[in-house]
Design a protein around this nucleic acid. Structure first.
Length: 416
DNA sequence: CCTCCACTGGAAACCTAGGCTC
DNA sequence: GAGCCTAGGTTTCCAGTGGAGG
């Protein structure tokens, strides 16, 4: 297994072989080592950071704590369902409560484990079970087993070891929409199989408020025995949250009041998304630091906002499967707006030129819908009357970011 | 009000990689 | 090691459809 090195941010230019390179590197390293970094604790701005106190979520924390408290007596808590839009604190609250409870559990020497699985990363039912297994030290081959075989291996092990599990299942809507709710059924059913007082409880987290409509009624009734709804943050709340993080992450006085307010209002415009607010702050800070600025200004925030979008696009496109990339390559070389048929023939041509067998139009239509969901393209179905019905396709992200990510792929870069 | 295009999107069949059984 | 099984991706088949132009 190789080591993949990733460089974040702007490429370092002018570093070649020979004498000058050392000087450049020395300069970079010295800058980093200088103790007067504007950051004091950059980690406090990472999006997996869980602060010691979470603002404006006291009720939700209390509710979740209350619902999960039975595990301290070794009893099974209800299955719980958390929902609210992105960046409303669902994940952070869940992880926070999980951390606090874990402390108690280890004091009491209870055999209960918390497991966190994100369904966007473990994107198929089978992968969810593999992930679940790996966190419980049960090795499940990445293919070859049936879902029920894989889940009974997990249950067997839990029963043998007498382990209770609270599964925090983030972005649970992802698997349910793409497949059906088999594993959810398997998992909620687990308690009947696990005799002897063991339990598996699920804390499901969803961004999609309508997600429940996709669920089988049997699963729904057992999955959402309890629910907590997370409202979006207001601008004032976002400001307070940022102010809190600024204290943790930056040297005093570095972040200007105007910059902070701008972060808050930009994020508030996107349905009160705290994650976005903190991301903006972090990237703005990194920009400021890289430029050797002593202050994070509103200008840094504005530029951060653009750079975040580019980075996201770049990351998403880069990790796409080959044919999805080819479709984007075809879309890049097409006019701004096109439709399925035209894009398909363009794509098929490119594929053949690369010696790749093109997928069928039916499949491409499906991939286009997936790209639409990812937000890379915009592809609503429109009817042009006599001229048929098709997807109206246009890129929804900056062209240059897509192009940069595609050029990374050796095969595709050869025809761009 | 009807027609008919260029697809869409559901359903089923098929393919592949890999584990399991004997 | 042959033969069987499954999940997930793809192909095949096809009925269904919104609305501009007649």
């Amino acid at each position: 297994m190789g080591i993949i090195m990733e460089f974040e941010g702007a490429p370092v230019e002018g570093v070649g072989e020979g004498g000058a390179a050392g000087d450049v590197l020395d300069k970079i390293f010295n800058n980093i080592m200088k103790s007067n970094s504007i950051f004091t604790n950059r980690d406090a701005l990472r999006n997996d950071y869980i602060p010691d106190r979470i603002l404006f979520r006291d009720d939700e924390i209390a509710q979740l704590g209350q619902m999960l408290a039975p595990i301290l007596r070794g009893n099974k808590p209800s299955n719980i369902f958390l929902y609210g839009k992105t960046g409303t604190g669902k994940t952070v609250v869940a992880k926070y409560v999980m951390r606090k409870l874990s402390e108690r559990i280890s004091q009491l020497k209870l055999n209960t484990k918390f497991i966190y699985v994100n369904a966007r990363l473990a994107s198929t039912q089978y992968k969810v079970l593999v992930e679940l297994g790996s966190q419980l030290d049960i090795s499940i081959p990445f293919t070859g087993l049936s879902l029920s075989e894989a889940s009974s291996r997990i249950f067997d092990k839990l029963r043998r070891d007498g382990v209770n599990v609270v599964l925090i299942f983030d972005e649970i809507d992802y698997i349910v929409k793409n497949y059906d709710d088999n594993i959810l059924y398997e998992l909620t059913r687990a308690n009947n199989e696990l005799l002897g007082g063991n339990f598996v409880s699920i804390v499901g987290i969803s961004n999609d408020l309508k997600f429940k409509e996709y669920l089988d009624p049997r699963v729904l009734s057992s999955l959402s025995e309890e629910e907590i709804v997370f409202p979006p943050y207001t601008v004032d709340e976002l400001e307070a949250i940022l102010r809190d993080r600024v204290k943790l992450a930056f040297r005093p006085g570095v972040v200007s009041e105007a910059a902070l307010k701008l972060c808050a209002s930009l994020a508030a415009a996107e349905h009160g998304d705290a994650r976005r607010a903190v991301d903006l702050l972090r990237v703005a800070g990194e920009l400021a630091e890289r430029e050797g600025s002593e202050e994070v200004s509103p200008d840094h925030v504005t530029r951060a906002s653009k750079s975040i979008e580019r980075d996201r696009t770049y990351e998403v496109v880069r990790s796409l499967p080959l044919h999805a990339k080819l479709i984007l390559a075809a879309a890049l070389s097409a006019p701004d707006e096109t439709n399925t048929g035209r894009l398909y023939s363009n794509y098929a041509l490119m594929a053949k030129r690369l010696g790749i067998e093109p997928l069928t139009q039916r499949r491409i239509s499906g991939i286009l819908s997936e790209l639409d969901v990812l937000g890379i393209i915009n592809a609503p179905v429109v009817s042009s009357g006599r001229f048929g019905r098709s997807k109206r396709i246009r890129l929804a992200v900056p062209r240059d970011a897509v192009a940069r990510a595609l050029r990374e792929d050796e095969l595709i870069s050869s025809i761009l």
